[in-house]
């Protein structure tokens, strides 16, 4: 188990390294941070000055070495929009994004698991159709639209929660739902289908034949066997959150997270800062996948120790 874990961590570190290198290629080979950061009418002289200031007039190999050695000690370069270390700016915003993702994941799991079980229990009955309806609606609606809808109803009309910003737990509720509803919709359907299939399997039939109730069998026997897939899918949803939903929803709710920082960095043509944000988000995705692997290993002893 420990050797397996060590191998997984080394593999994850390698993936982070490759991904960050790709980010470097995009920001330094395909584009020129100096040109991007300057107005269109800037002279060649201005650009040369900016290049020298950013150190990108040096050979690519040297720059790459700088980038990688900086990465190891957590130095992601200077933001020229904010005049501060990019890593500091990103890490300051990170807790807000993690809070948001945690809230959205809680919404996802706490809605999807019971809804999937209920739909499976009442297969082809009203509850099943109702859950299917919810899933279709939540999957089809774009998260930013759900976000605005929630703001209009719960913040503006009812006044229960603030419309935007990050002031304590209450302000976390709406953005968490805006992100989590679609994920919950997808996961509920997966859970339902998984349980319905598992209920026909011999071990579930055996449990029922021993006199365990349908609800006990669903919760204690089949859900466990669906859990591995459930965790994997939750990991995917987390990935989507880090790389897409949080960015959009942080803008909608003026949430001070990494996503909104990335958007501002793009608006201000601060490629170094964009690069830092992408590196951090990519790392989070890799860490998520690592945690999913560990969780699956704990749920199912048959998972290969490869």
């Amino acid at each position: 188990m420990l050797r397996w874990l060590a191998r997984r961590i080394i593999a994850a570190a390698l993936v982070v390294f490759v991904v960050t290198s790709l980010v470097f290629v995009v920001t330094h080979v395909f584009t020129d941070p100096a040109t991007v950061s300057l107005p269109l009418e800037a002279t060649e002289e201005h650009r040369a000055d900016r290049r020298a200031a950013l150190g990108i007039d040096r050979p690519l190999a040297v720059q790459y070495w700088d980038f990688v050695s900086g990465l190891v000690v957590g130095d992601l370069g200077e933001s020229f929009w904010q005049d501060q270390p990019a890593s500091k700016l990103v890490l300051e915003r990170l807790p807000a994004t993690l809070k948001l993702v945690a809230g959205a994941t809680a919404v996802t799991v706490l809605l999807a698991a019971p809804m999937g079980m209920l739909a499976a229990w009442w297969e082809r009955r009203f509850a099943d159709h109702a859950v299917l309806g919810f899933s279709m609606a939540s999957i089809s609606a774009p998260p930013f639209w759900i976000g605005y809808l929630l703001i209009i109803v719960f913040a503006v009309q009812l006044g229960w929660v603030p419309t935007f910003g990050s002031r304590g737990f209450v302000s976390l509720i709406l953005p968490s739902f805006a992100i989590g509803l679609a994920s919950a919709g997808r996961l509920a359907q997966m859970t339902r289908r998984g349980i319905v299939e598992e209920l026909r399997k011999p071990y579930a039939v055996t449990a029922l034949s021993r006199g365990f109730s349908r609800s006990y069998t669903i919760v204690h026997h089949t859900f466990r066997n669906v859990a591995s897939g459930f965790v994997t899918m939750t990991g995917w949803e987390l990935t989507r959150m880090f790389t897409g939903y949080t960015v959009v929803i942080e803008v909608v709710f003026a949430w001070p997270g990494v996503g909104r920082l990335a958007i501002h960095a793009i608006e201000n043509r601060d490629l170094i800062l964009v690069q830092a944000a992408v590196v951090v988000l990519a790392t989070l995705v890799v860490v998520t996948n690592l945690l999913v692997d560990i969780a699956r290993r704990m749920i199912d002893p048959r998972v290969e120790l490869a």
Binding site: P202, Y203, T206, S209, R210, H221, D300
Partner: peptide, 15 residues
């Protein structure tokens, strides 16, 4: 009480 054909799949694999 019932005993089934294939004990591999009739016992819960995760318990």
């Amino acid at each position: 009480a019932m005993i089934f054909q294939d004990p591999m799949v009739s016992l819960n694999p995760l318990k």
